[in-house]
């Protein structure tokens, strides 16, 4: 299955959350591969703590491949090459975790027919090998999004299941922007329909993920004065209503990830070690990530709405 990770704005935690989902699925035994299609700023390698590819690799990455300069893009075996202390010990029963990095000086580029064909070939090939293929797309209505829509509309790809996660922060501006990215005139659905996608099917394959969501009920906020607490609840409720009005409400949400300092500041994978031993990350965050990871392939969470 292909999972495209999109967001309207930067700073939504799209890359770090998607990488965490990939990691969770690999821990559970799936073979997972993560493609850094964030053409503007490939950073996925930093999340996986793979040295030598921290801001993308010098050459031979996804950009070079899509431009036809190499016949296969570079692959990084995360378990073998990470410098993350915990990740280096691959747990028994875990699946492969492979990163396809972007090139350091890749940048955005217009997608021609040849690049598109190479993209289709690559996605078909990875889908044949991996249980889950996570594709991290540049923020906004980018060339990367166009290429993903175009590639999945090809006849050769019709049998390949593809899903979309649209990340946004839990703020007014972010909710509006994310809804616009999906349903707007130049949004994902409209862009998909232009390329031959079926509107209902495509809508059914898109879910929102709310990131950095402060939970007013969390113990973190239990000490705040009552007026502040009431205000937080009101804001949360207003946002829920706004999201529902913009068709980004409950039925379109796959899950929420709490506000988590480790995700915000360290921008790395949250391991069980972080939660149980060093306790720098919250149990709720781990749980939220685990649930999201499970829901990626759970039939009940998907389908036409």
């Amino acid at each position: 299955m292909l999972v495209f990770a999109a967001s309207d704005k930067g700073g939504t935690g799209r890359s770090v959350t998607s990488a965490n989902l990939a990691y969770r699925r690999a821990l559970a035994g799936d073979d997972v591969c993560y493609l850094d299609f964030d053409f503007g700023s490939p950073t996925a390698a930093a999340v996986f703590d793979v040295p030598g590819a921290l801001r993308g690799i010098e050459a031979g990455g996804l950009h070079t491949y899509l431009q036809g300069k190499v016949s296969e893009p570079e692959r990084i075996d995360v378990w073998a090459e990470t410098e993350h202390e915990v990740l280096r010990h691959r747990p028994t029963g875990s699946g492969n975790l492979v990163l396809l990095p972007g090139d350091r000086s890749g940048g955005e580029f217009a997608v021609g027919r040849d690049a598109l064909r190479r993209c289709v070939d690559l996605l078909l090939r990875l889908n044949a090998e991996f249980d889950l293929v996570v594709v991290d797309l540049s923020a906004g209505r980018s060339y990367a999004v166009d290429m993903a829509l175009e590639a999945t509309s090809r006849p050769a790809m019709r049998g390949v299941e593809a899903r979309w996660l649209v990340y946004h922060r839990w703020t007014r501006q972010h909710v509006i922007a994310a809804a616009g990215l999906v349903f707007g005139d130049r949004g994902i659905v409209a862009g998909g329909v232009d390329r031959g996608h079926d509107a209902e099917r495509l809508r059914g394959a898109i879910r929102f993920v709310r990131a950095a969501v402060p939970d007013p009920e969390s113990p973190l906020w239990s000490q705040v004065p009552p007026p502040q607490s009431a205000w937080m609840r009101k804001c949360d409720q207003d946002l829920d209503e706004l999201a529902a009005d913009l068709e980004a409400g409950f039925s379109m949400v796959l899950g929420s990830v709490p506000l988590e300092p480790v995700l915000q500041w360290r921008e790395q994978l949250i391991t069980d070690e972080d939660v149980l031993a060093s306790k720098v990350a919250n149990m709720e965050t781990r749980q939220a990530l685990e649930e999201l990871a499970a829901k990626l392939t759970d039939h009940e969470s998907w389908g036409a709405t």
Partner: peptide, 24 residues
């Protein structure tokens, strides 16, 4: 050989729903 393999794998006859995942 890769070019030939991918060209064949793009064929319309194939539903791209293999019974299991495997590596080349």
């Amino acid at each position: 050989s890769e070019r030939l393999l991918t060209a064949v794998l793009r064929h319309q006859l194939l539903d791209q729903r293999p019974p299991f995942k495997s590596r080349r």
